[in-house]
Design a protein around this nucleic acid. Structure first.
Length: 806
RNA sequence: GCGGGCGUGGCGGAAUGGCAGACGCGCUGGUCUUAGGAACCAGUCCAAUCGGGUGCAGGUUCAAGUCCUGUCGCCCGCACCA
């Protein structure tokens, strides 16, 4: 009897959905398990096999959990606001709402064909009013809490998309969406004060189980460094002290006696403040103008000679030596980190060294150990030329002493800095959540009242942003003009929308209670389901989505809206699927594999098994259609077991093989080692065919073991074997530890590390017994005869090694 | 430059410090077929007598793909972060 893939798969998918067997309920009699995968952005291109891989890992885990008796929540939804949809709408004239609905429909049908056990009753779509009402609500709460602020600053601006981008969205100086070069532009920008949560985001990592490289990337992104702030007095040409001091940040206060000059960013406000004192203002302005032309990318990315201009008319005083030193402006110092000014210690900092060499500035060694005539020395060593620090041997101690000194003199203190910057939160775009703020000429920025949410996205004819980069919403007078919620006077609405990351910052909470209209989710339900027990997604979201959503969640925790401090107890990541050519899949390379094509030809089960079998789940692996045929054979051979299964007594060999496999597969799923789990089942299958038969009860066990991977064929076989319920809900097979241990085991006997013989011994043989058995072997006896035994090592269950001399 | 990871057959990849190459693909030979790009059976690291093999060179150990040092190559993240 041949297995009819396509009809069978459709049949079971329909039955699962009709009976709602994957619908989660708040059943307090069972332990809960919340498995979360990153919901997709429904692009017009449809899904590719990479999406399937991203969901297949937790799909197996969740299916196993259900069979283990857990109450499982495994939801899916759509992160549907975003630029590609809007750009498509601009190009085609089709409204983004319609485009989004079409794409969601396409994604849904693709996902259903793979047979994922999602709870389709809890689907969320971030662009629905019932959803973005609460996105706006959380934003308003942040506004009330003072975490939202407006500032005019230099921002990353994409001239193609005509939007302001966060640092996260413009990594490498390229727009994350269209890959154009980013330019710096002065703009009025809304920020979320994520830096306020830097410590909490960092410290919270101690309480969760994230993949080590995920954790490390988050730590690096937040980038906490401890050091010191110090104030340097400023003096003018005549030696008169100025009112303002120059504040710097340093991680090396121990080297302060080696400071021979200072550098500030070209945009530093001190230059404006004391413009009248400057003797070379024209030269400074020219340099400043030159820097403004460069993008942040050029300033930071290009390896180049240090440039700069010495400030004429103002000098600084080293607070520990009392010496007067020059100040430079240079673009190697950024306004956006620390205080925008540094103390330069050329002897012990590579950048300062390069600058000093170029400008002929003194280099004073304060730490012994290097050769400062050749290069900067950044290592540890004994302090010299450093007054009260002389003779101290370690950096740590010297820093502590200096901090005490700075404190006593009132010229500095310990300080902490972060690389992470506040989150630029507005986009001049149509297809996003309107920012619920009103600008009142009298009251200033006022939040839209909670009872007026959602602030609906109005219908628009033309979605293109204005030439000046203003939002399409700015053209709709009926939207813009409004009354101030506070004073009732004429006011104007904010016309920018939120960035794409807004909706995905809290979706995992909405899944707990997706249709609630009175709150973003019922507190009791949140208490039951949260935190997410296991979250899997791509490495590319580790520094953005994962940080942002933790930030939103922590804020909600602080205002008492969610029951736990961290949203995700565990985070893992899948590797990419590369094209058959070994390159990253992309439309332009034409190497994208469409899951629909694979399902048409091989069926969903083969697709699922192959994707999990192709390699380590966390690593990238190229697609290979011929390798997939092996998985097809595997499932066909599984199906063939129906023909050889008989009622009767189990044979010990096969029984033992099955128990070992159950143990192996159960453990491998927990470690996401799906490839070796499938390999173990393949090996078991080979054993069974070699043996020639198995019992019906053994086959039922095997079918349950395979069910999370290939559920359709397993349901069909389950039914063929006379079962009336769902295999998907049957009990996860148990193994008997005793039966995983063979009565005898083959042991390798090594002489001086080389295998010379194999012996069969009882599995529980101890070391002495092993050595005795080894020596009793004829080959071994011959090889050690007449030689001195230097050492005998026996590892039960593994091997014996006899080291001989002579 | 800094941080992290990786390097194993023709290919994807397995190996708590304990018999390297599980499992799959591909390939070779065979069976059955009008046919085979189907199915099944046998074989498949090199050399085949000792042996030699996990990028390269050392080291630790009774024992190293695994640990340590150096080196080469590749991948990812951050990038003048003071």
């Amino acid at each position: 009897m041949k297995y009819d893939i396509l009809n069978t798969e459709k049949k079971w998918q329909d039955k699962w959905e009709q009976d709602g067997i994957f619908h989660a309920s708040e059943d307090h009699s069972k332990p809960k398990f919340y498995g979360l995968v990153e919901f997709p952005y429904p692009s017009g291109a449809g899904m590719h096999v990479g999406h399937i891989k991203a969901y297949s890992g937790l799909e197996v885990v969740c299916r196993k959990r259900r069979m283990q008796g857990y109450n499982v929540l495994f939801p899916i939804g759509f992160d549907a606001y975003g630029l590609p949809t809007e750009n498509y709408a601009i190009k085609t004239g089709i409204h983004p709402r319609k485009v989004t609905d079409m794409n969601i429909e396409k994604f849904t049908s693709q996902l259903r064909r793979v047979g994922f056990s999602f709870d389709w009753t809890r689907t969320v779509d971030t662009t629905q009013e019932g959803y973005y009402k609460w996105t706006q609500w959380i934003f308003r709460k942040m506004f009330d809490a003072g975490l939202v602020f407006r500032a005019t600053t230099l921002v990353n601006y994409c001239p193609t998309c005509k939007v302001v981008l966060s640092n996260e969205d413009s990594q490498g100086g390229k727009c994350d969406i269209c890959h154009s070069d980013i330019v710096q532009k002065s703009k009025d920008v809304w920020y979320l004060r994520i830096t306020e949560y830097a410590d909490k985001l960092l410290d919270g990592l101690n309480d969760v189980d994230y993949l080590p490289n995920v954790r490390l990337q988050q730590e690096n992104w937040i980038g906490r460094s401890t050091g010191a702030f110090a104030d340097f007095r400023l003096v003018d040409e005549g030696g008169n002290e100025l009112a303002e001091k120059l504040r710097i940040y340093t991680t090396r206060p121990d080297t302060m006696f080696g400071v021979t000059f200072m550098v500030m960013a070209p945009e530093h406000p001190v230059l404006e403040k004391y413009a009248d004192k400057l003797t070379n203002k024209a030269e400074l302005d020219a340099y400043k103008a030159e820097c403004a032309k460069k993008t942040e990318f050029e300033r930071t990315q290009l390896v180049k000679d240090k440039t700069g201009v010495c400030i004429g008319g103002i000098r600084a005083v080293n607070p520990v030596t009392g010496k007067t030193i020059p100040i430079y402006i240079s673009d190697y110092v950024m306004m956006g980190y620390g205080t925008g000014a540094i103390m330069a210690v050329p002897a012990h900092d590579e950048r300062d060294y390069a600058f000093a060499k170029k400008f002929g500035i003194d280099i004073i060694e304060v730490i012994k150990g290097g050769d400062i005539s050749k290069e900067a020395y950044t290592g540890d060593g004994e302090m010299v030329n450093s007054g009260f620090l002389n003779g101290i041997a370690t950096k740590k101690e010297a820093i502590e002493k200096m901090l005490v000194y700075l404190g006593e003199k009132g010229v500095g203190e310990k300080g902490i800095q972060y690389k992470m910057k506040d989150w630029a939160f507005n986009r001049q775009r149509y297809w996003g959540e309107p920012i619920p703020i009103v600008h009142c000429p009298v009251c200033g920025d006022v939040g839209v009242p909670y009872e007026e949410l959602p602030l609906r996205l109005p219908a628009v004819e033309n979605f293109a942003p204005g030439e000046g980069g203003e939002s399409p919403l700015a053209k709709i007078d009926s939207f813009v003009n409004c009354k101030c919620p506070r004073c009732g006077g004429d006011a104007k609405r904010e016309t920018d929308t939120m960035p794409q990351w807004a909706g995905s910052s809290w979706y995992f909470l909405r899944y707990c209670d997706p249709s609630n209209d009175n709150s973003f989710a019922d507190p009791e339900r949140l208490k039951y389901w949260m935190p997410v027990d296991w979250y899997n997604g791509g490495m590319e979201h580790v520094t953005r989505h994962l940080i942002y959503s933790r930030f939103w969640h922590k804020f909600l925790y602080d205002i008492g809206e969610v029951p736990c401090a961290e949203p995700y107890a565990k985070r893992t990541a899948q590797g990419l699927i590369l094209g058959p050519d070994g390159e990253k899949m992309s439309k332009s390379k034409g190497n994208v594999v469409d899951p629909n094509d694979v399902v048409d030809e091989y069926g969903a089960d083969v697709l699922r098994v192959y994707i999990l079998f192709m390699g380590d789940y966390g690593s990238a692996a190229p697609w290979s259609e011929s390798s997939m045929r092996g998985c097809k054979r595997f499932l066909e051979r599984i199906w063939g077991l129906l023909g050889i299964a008989v009622e009767g007594e189990v044979t010990p060999e096969i029984e033992s093989s099955i128990h070992k496999t159950v143990k192996k597969v159960s453990g491998d799923i927990e470690e996401m080692k799906f490839n070796t789990a499938i390999a173990a089942m393949m090996a078991l299958l080979n054993d069974i065919y070699d043996h020639g038969s198995l019992t019906v009860s053994e086959l039922k066990l095997l079918v349950r073991l395979l069910c999370p991977f290939a559920p359709h064929i397993c349901e069909e076989m389950w039914q063929q074997l006379g079962e009336t319920g769902y295999c998907s809900l049957a009990a996860w097979p148990q193994w008997d530890e005793v039966k995983t241990v063979d009565a005898t085991v083959e042991i390798a006997v090594q002489i001086n590390g080389k295998v010379r013989a194999k012996i069969i011994v009882p599995s529980d043989a101890d070391k002495d017994a092993l050595i005795a058995a080894a020596k009793a072997d004829a080959t071994v006896a011959g090889l050690i005869a007449g030689k001195t035994i230097a050492k005998e090592i026996a590892v039960p269950g593994k091997l014996v090694n006899i080291a001989v001399k002579g």
